[in-house]
Design a protein around this nucleic acid. Structure first.
Lengths: 224, 224
DNA sequence: TTTGTAATGTAACGAATGTTACAAACTGAA
DNA sequence: TTCAGTTTGTAACATTCGTTACATTACAAA
């Protein structure tokens, strides 16, 4: 029923041979459920007490707002695991409604069985811990970035991070537009702020190359 | 050397009896290190390849900015674990410099040994997974909150979340000032916006009680 | 070279929010 | 009650940023 060659491509089972994976699944209880296109797989608010991995097909995650309208959040396809961040932790309910966008095969492992799996295989344990930890780290970085209120601060943080120790010209790979989107601001606002920083003697710009002229004053911007 | 009665208060060892914990520690390699006040414990950038738990005393975490100045981030005391989010994941380096603010005893468990521990004891495994997952969930919530640009949106989201299904008066436990801090805005701005929403017929306010009058229009605010 | 398209610089205006200041209302203790 | 401290309402002004529009520059294909 399970397809080890597919599942071992999943971030959780990465590095495990299909044979070992097959053997592992023999030691635990699990289900393989099939869904047809447009079938509901989980509802927002459902308790998340089992690990779900897409073995075949693709699904979409939607969120219902308070007035009942649905907004698509994400598309996922095999061999991806669903909602790994909500299997453990305080708030272990699905935040989204998941439904099939094609015929789907889903491997469902009850939480206690998955815990057993983690104990049986150190590689899976590491993979899973890495998955959640990386997510937390990613979110933490993103949050730190958003904590800078002004565009000037965001630019300063970005450039100082990118420059590291060296007092050199930084090459920005992205266009102004992409940079603006990353900062969550509009393109003209970014351009204006860059212009202001040039006038203030903080930086020099030449197309995609930016030179930091006054590291100390840049830092002071980040303090407020 | 280790003090099981203290360590089992730690979120990671919660629910384990001191005896069981003692027995567990017998099966793995670990160190107990002592530091004097003001000693450096870890430097920002150090590879985080061991779990550190404060067994006695207190420490502070500081971050060095790009110009070399240090900013205090956090204070921690026994029996708290350090940097649980950085033991696994892609970026497993300490983001902060940790130093002792009193005489400190620190239990140091190498990562492979801690993994062994997780495999030996399902409760510790659950505790650790819960710790990281809760953190990711917390950050995710915070991030979602910050994604609302205007104060009106933040208020709407907060109230709708708090109200749930019922169309009732919501009691806000916090003062306007605390609420403002939570939203990352200033108190007068929050008060002004609340006033505007009253005038627009969206809500009614009476001290710490807020009544939602028009749920649909509140939702439309969140769409933009 | 010419030409079209994308990227960039710039300006004017308006909306949202911060800043500062002060008055009114509430709260709890003397 | 009275009074001090806290919370809340409100106003004027400054700042930041988004919006829109347009000119300029770079770049690559014809």
């Amino acid at each position: 029923m399970i397809q080890p060659e597919i599942l071992c491509q999943s971030p959780i089972f990465r590095g495990i041979s299909p044979n070992d994976l097959q053997e592992l699944f023999r030691q635990i209880h699990y289900q393989v459920k099939t869904y047809q296109k447009n079938d509901l797989i989980t509802m927002a608010g459902d308790v998340c007490d089992r690990l779900l991995i897409i073995q075949e097909g693709s699904v979409k995650a939607e969120m219902t707002d308070y007035s009942g309208k649905t907004i698509k959040i994400e598309d996922m396809a095999a061999p991806w695991p669903l909602a790994t961040a909500f299997l453990f932790g305080k708030e272990n309910r699905f935040p989204v409604t998941v439904s099939a966008t094609s015929d789907v095969e889903m491997v469902s492992i009850p939480k206690p069985e998955f815990v057993k799996m983690l104990q049986l295989n150190a590689l899976i344990l590491n993979n899973y811990l890495n998955t959640i930890s990386s997510r937390a780290q990613f979110l933490s970085q993103k949050l730190k970035f958003l904590s800078f209120k002004t565009i000037k601060q965001k630019i300063a943080h970005y450039l100082l991070e990118k420059a590291g120790d060296r007092l050199q010209t930084v090459e920005v790979q992205q266009s102004q537009g992409q940079l603006a989107e990353m900062f969550g601001v509009t393109r003209p606002s970014l351009a204006r702020t860059l212009g202001e920083m040039v006038q203030e003697g903080l930086i020099e710009t030449d197309r995609r190359f930016i030179k930091i002229l006054d590291k100390n004053r840049m830092n002071q911007l980040l303090m407020g």
